[in-house]
């Protein structure tokens, strides 16, 4: 029972990170209609930028988190502006190639600046406490609370502000949005900013627990795609639920079967769910 609870807790922690990253990916895919393959790499860069503020400049955890959010938000705007916007009316394949170019650039950048070896950020909250017989690390709990706060904040923004509603509007009907006086380029930029900033914050929360490496973005990006498909393309609740499901499946599979096969469970779950429901959990009939 303890093992089970411990793994569920870990799963929820990973799931929190997955949910945030997948949520950002879904938002951008909705607006651009093309997959931003570089999304996981923005997460990776967020981790390194946090490292830079804490490890190199010696700032505290919270100021570093806020600064990382701002830096990556601006980077998201820049990426939309120079990588994707010029390709708006071009065939989708061009944007695919641009996305792959962007991810190679970001990974190489991290490699050149910080090197291939893993880096560690000192854990700001190393304390543990016991609950229901399992050990809960404070920083791990913070990952979960941080994610839930972000998700809640995004929900309020999307559903109860006019700027948030324009994101949905552009995703549902780009020309219709323009004809209502919405500046769709600005909405794209805002969406990119939100999606990179939230991915970066997820990385800031998790990086004191796990080593940073330039390749971590590719793995997470791939999983985020799995989650988006699993949850149903373009579905925000799907991305959140999908993230938590994947996290828990991985943790349980890792705990009970073998940690070495952790990633196999992710892909296995994808295949099974898509066999049962080809449009994903929250997918529409004609996605």
């Amino acid at each position: 029972m303890e093992l089970f609870l411990q793994q569920v807790f870990n799963g929820i922690m990973f799931g929190s990170t997955y949910a945030i990253v997948a949520l950002g990916l879904t938002l951008v895919m909705g607006i651009l209609n093309i997959p931003n393959f570089a999304h996981g790499h923005l997460y990776m860069l967020g981790g390194y930028i946090t490292f830079f503020f804490i490890g190199t400049l010696g700032l505290g955890f919270w100021p570093s988190l806020v600064l990382t959010l701002i830096v990556l938000g601006l980077l998201g705007v820049l990426m939309e502006r120079i990588v994707y916007r010029p390709l708006t009316d071009q065939p989708h394949i061009n944007a695919f190639i641009a996305a792959i170019g962007a991810l190679i650039f970001l990974e190489s950048l991290a490699l050149v600046v910080w090197g291939p070896q893993g880096l560690r950020i000192p854990n700001p909250y190393p304390q543990n406490f016991e609950l229901l017989g399992i050990t809960i690390g404070l920083q791990r709990l913070l990952v979960i609370i941080g994610a839930i706060t972000l998700i809640f904040g995004l929900h309020v923004f999307m559903k109860h502000t006019i700027l948030g509603t324009t994101i949905e509007a552009v995703a549902q009907n780009r020309e219709g949005a323009m004809l209502n006086g919405i500046n769709v380029n600005r909405v794209s930029a805002v969406t990119f900013a939100i999606s990179s900033a939230t991915a970066a914050v997820a990385a800031s929360f998790l990086s004191p627990i796990f080593m940073l490496s330039p390749s971590m973005g590719a793995i997470l990006g791939m999983k985020a795609f799995i989650i988006v498909i699993l949850g149903g393309m373009g579905s925000i609740p799907g991305a959140i639920l999908g993230g938590y499901i994947l996290g828990v499946i991985e943790a349980l599979g890792g705990g009970y079967i073998s940690a070495a096969y952790k990633d196999v469970f992710a892909f296995g779950a994808l295949i099974i769910i898509l066999t049962v429901k080809p449009t994903g959990i929250f997918g529409k009939k004609e996605a």
């Binding site: 509603t165 949905e168 509007a169 549902q172 009907n173 020309e175 219709g176 949005a177 004809l179």
Partner: peptide, 8 residues
């Protein structure tokens, strides 16, 4: 074609 936002 109206160009409404169908999910809103």
């Amino acid at each position: 074609g109206r160009q409404l936002f169908p999910e809103l």
